[in-house]
Nucleic acid binder design. Structure first.
Length: 431
DNA sequence: TCTGGGGTCCTAGGACCC
DNA sequence: TCTGGGGTCCTAGGACCC
């Protein structure tokens, strides 16, 4: 057998990827056990697309990212349970899972809402399986979420292992990918598009060159990869060959940008309504950076028409705007955003989406707002605003520019209760 | 009728300078 | 009229991730 292009010298290097199965669907099931074994889907904002499917829903042929209205027929015919996404619930459950994982390794990278990398450096291979079984069982028992675990000597290999643990029933949710032969055989079963970092475009490009599996990619000439795919491709190949290029990021790196954008529940034509919506998003994004103790120096806003609607004329525009000084003051950010809309708005288009992105974020304590004469007053005003909205619900207290009726506001027709984060929505046990 | 949102990183190309 | 070359920096846009 040919050797993989690089040796797996680091036998003791073990990284585990723990990934919650159909996370949002599993969250809904915790509080509604009747849903166990039943097909479930969870919808994106605005009840637009299907973003999570339980295993049963996948088996029915419902595709990831499919628009809800297109899948409605299958859904109704098979009595699939449908939920609008409920991020405060999922965020809370995620925290509970992550807290458990922090107890299983001193080095944990929380990679996304439903995934974490754990460093198992120094573990002997035969210990790994027992340990992973224990993790899986603990999370199931304490939180009620099923997880899959993949272990490999690099992040990319642990992703591959996780993929196999999920896809192939024999693994029973845990795949330890160790030993050159075993790795090579596994890479042979992985389609190129399922490799972490190879998306739609690259996978099409590679297939055109006859590279269809992860194994073929691992054996490609590295100079060719460098030339055609840049450093990104090169790193992926090295990682597949057991050479670690991606370190665990134990501390979350500071945010560089912060965005709030939404599609409207119906097309908007009037500038007043666009301004009202951008004022809302401005307010939310300012609130978000205040929560993290950040201030922004610049921002951009954007508007889009509905590009799916081929019959309508299309327009999209964005504009970059400077703030007078770094700030997290909702009033200033909203004011600038509303002015910005005036500059990019064009009449007689039907707008579908708008958004605001804040840039050049810094810690609010690290920068003295020399130009911000009003800083103490503003800070205390914003603090009160945040406290009231935290206690009485988001946007209870808001700027006049944000409007009252907000008829363009997003749809969320099938949302479950916030079982764990809202007192008035706690589960009631009747006896 | 109805098609998500929030991030990061990399690269190509233009502007500018000497 | 002819009009270099190399370096840096910035930005927009693309690709990817979940």
């Amino acid at each position: 057998m040919r050797q993989l292009p690089a040796n797996h010298q680091s036998l003791l290097q073990s990284i585990a990827l723990i990934d919650c199965n159909s996370f949002y669907a599993s969250c809904e099931r915790i509080f509604n056990p009747k849903l166990l074994g039943k097909p479930i889907v969870v919808l994106s904002n605005n009840d637009g697309c299907i973003i999570t499917r339980s295993a049963e829903a996948k088996a029915l042929g419902i595709k990831m990212g499919e628009p809800y209205f297109k899948a409605k027929k299958i859904i109704e015919k098979n009595n699939v349970k449908v939920f609008s996404s409920n991020y405060s619930l999922y965020g809370d459950i995620s925290q509970r899972v992550m807290e458990i994982l922090l107890g299983f390794s001193p080095e944990v990278e929380i990679y996304s809402i439903d995934e974490a990398f754990l460093n198992f450096k120094g573990f002997k291979n035969h210990e790994l399986l027992t340990y992973c079984k224990h993790i899986r069982q603990t999370i199931k028992q304490w939180v009620g979420i099923p997880v899959s675990i993949g272990v490999g000597s690099t992040k990319t290999l642990s992703k591959i292992a996780n993929h196999l643990a999920k896809k192939e029933a024999d693994y029973e949710g845990i795949c330890i990918l160790k030993g050159d032969e075993k790795i090579e055989e596994a890479l042979n079963r992985i389609e190129i598009g399922d490799v972490w970092g190879i998306g739609r475009r690259l996978s099409k490009f590679l297939r055109n060159y006859g590279v269809c599996t992860a194994k073929q990619f691992a054996f490609l000439d590295r100079r060719w990869i460098r030339k055609n795919m840049g450093v990104v491709g090169e790193k992926i190949q090295l990682e597949l060959c057991g050479v670690s290029c991606l370190d665990l990021e134990l501390l979350p790196s500071p945010k560089k940008s912060c965005c709030v954008s939404r599609s409207f529940s119906r097309p908007i034509e009037k500038i007043e309504e666009l301004q009202e919506s951008i004022a809302n998003y401005g307010s939310r994004v300012a609130e978000k950076i205040r929560e993290e103790g950040l201030i922004a120096q610049s921002m951009s806003i954007f508007v889009l028409t509905n590009h799916f609607n081929k019959k309508e004329k299309q327009y999209s525009s964005s504009i970059k705007l400077q703030l007078d000084y770094p700030t997290s003051d909702s009033k200033l950010i909203v004011k600038r955003a509303v002015e910005g809309i005036q500059r990019i708005y064009k009449e007689s288009y039907r707008y579908k989406k708008a958004g605001i992105i804040l840039y050049e974020l810094h810690s609010s304590s690290s920068v003295r707002g020399l130009l911000d004469y009003d800083k103490p007053r503003t800070d205390s005003l914003m603090r009160s605003l945040d406290e009231i909205n935290y206690r009485y619900g988001s946007a209870t207290l808001r700027l006049a520019a944000e409007g009252i009726r907000r008829s363009w506001h997003m749809r969320r027709e099938k949302v479950s209760p916030c079982y764990t984060t809202s007192f008035d929505q706690l589960m009631i046990v009747k006896s």
